[in-house]
């Protein structure tokens, strides 16, 4: 467990989270949310939780993003905030 790597990825996770809720386009929000999930999976891999990070890589960064894009495709990309 390398604490420098841990700190850098944690800060990137927070940046991705702020980006996902601030961006003015829901499709961009979907992609930033996928990036957030993948960085989270790296964080868990560093902590030694291999099963959890495997699940997050397949669920959070994979299928969840697909659901999100499908929903945005069927509704609208527009958002006011």
């Amino acid at each position: 467990m390398i604490w420098e790597l841990d700190l850098v990825i944690l800060i990137l996770v927070i940046i991705a989270a702020i980006g996902a809720i601030q961006v003015k386009d829901l499709l961009g929000c979907a992609i930033l949310f996928g990036a957030y999930s993948f960085l989270m999976c790296l964080l868990w891999a560093i902590m030694g939780a291999v099963d959890v990070s495997f699940t997050e890589a397949s669920v959070g960064a994979g299928v969840s993003t697909v659901f999100f894009v499908a929903a945005v495709f069927r509704t609208t990309r527009r958002t006011k905030d």
């Binding site: 099963d51 495997f54 699940t55 397949s58 669920v59 994979g62 299928v63 697909v66």
Partner: peptide, 14 residues
């Protein structure tokens, strides 16, 4: 190894 029903099921669905 890391893995199991939940992960494998999600990959099959994907």
């Amino acid at each position: 190894s890391p893995g199991g029903g939940f992960q494998g099921g999600v990959i099959l669905g994907a």
